Amino acid sequence: MTTPETTKKHHAISRRNLLILGGVAVATAAVPASFRLFEHEAESTIDELLAMLSDREGAAMIGRRWLETTGQEKQKTVAAKITKRLRTHGWQPGNTPEALHEALGSRIRHDFEHGDMVEVSGWQLSRTSVELCVLAALHQDAVAIG
C-alpha cells in the first residue's frame, strides 16, 4: 500500500536534479546554434584564406594535382589544418589581411626550414602552400556543384 509520504519520495524532484535538468535543456538548445555559428565561422575563414591567393585558378590546379595523389579531403578539414598552423604564427580568424599575409609567409618559411615539404608534379612545395591550393580546388569544385 502506498502512503502519501512514499508517493512524495518517488515523484519529488530535488532542486539539484531540477537545476541539472535545466542546465542540460539549455545546453541542448544551444548546440544547434553553436553549430550554425561554427559553420559561419568556417566559411568566413575559408574566404579569408582564399583571399590570399592572387591566382585561384592556378592554385586550384596545383591543389587538384595534390589531391590526385592523396585522395579527397573536405574544405573545412583543410581550412582547419591551415588555421591551426597559422595560429602558431600569431594569426586568428578575423584578423586583418596584413596579419594573415604575415602569418602565412612566416608559416611557409617555417615549412621550408623544417623540411615540411610535399612533391607536386616534381616540384617541392611547402605543405601549407599546397594545402591552400587544395582549399582553392575544393572551394572551386563546391561552387561549381552548388
Rank of each mutant, 00 (worst) to 15 (best):
R107W: 09
A103E: 05
V31I: 15
A99F: 05
M52I: 04
Q75P: 04
P32R: 14
A103K: 06
K74I: 04
E57W: 03
E68N: 09
I82K: 06
I108W: 01
I62L: 15
R107G: 04
R85K: 15
L21G: 07
L86Q: 05
M61L: 10
L18R: 12
A103C: 04
T70K: 13
V78E: 04
P32H: 08
K74T: 02
R56L: 10
G23E: 01
A25Q: 01
W66R: 14
P93Y: 04
F35M: 13
I62K: 11
A33M: 08
P93S: 02
I82C: 01
G23T: 10
A59W: 09
H89D: 13
V24D: 02
L104N: 06
R36Q: 14
L19G: 08
A25Y: 06
Q75L: 06
L19K: 14
E98H: 04
R65K: 15
W91F: 07
K81R: 15
R36H: 09
W66H: 15
D47T: 12
A25G: 06
A25R: 04
E48I: 11
W66Q: 08
S44L: 12
K76W: 07
L21S: 03
S106W: 00
A42N: 09
H101A: 12
L100H: 02
H89A: 02
R56E: 09
P32Q: 12
L49I: 09
M61D: 11
Q75A: 12
L67D: 03
R87W: 08
R65H: 15
R87M: 13
W66L: 08
K74S: 05
F35E: 12
A103L: 10
A30R: 06
D47P: 00
E98N: 07
E48H: 01
E41H: 10
K76T: 12
T70V: 14
R109V: 13
T77L: 14
W91D: 06
E39W: 07
E57H: 09
A29P: 01
W91R: 03
K84C: 00
M52G: 00
D55M: 11
I82T: 02
A51Y: 09
R107V: 05
R64A: 15
E43C: 06
A42Q: 14
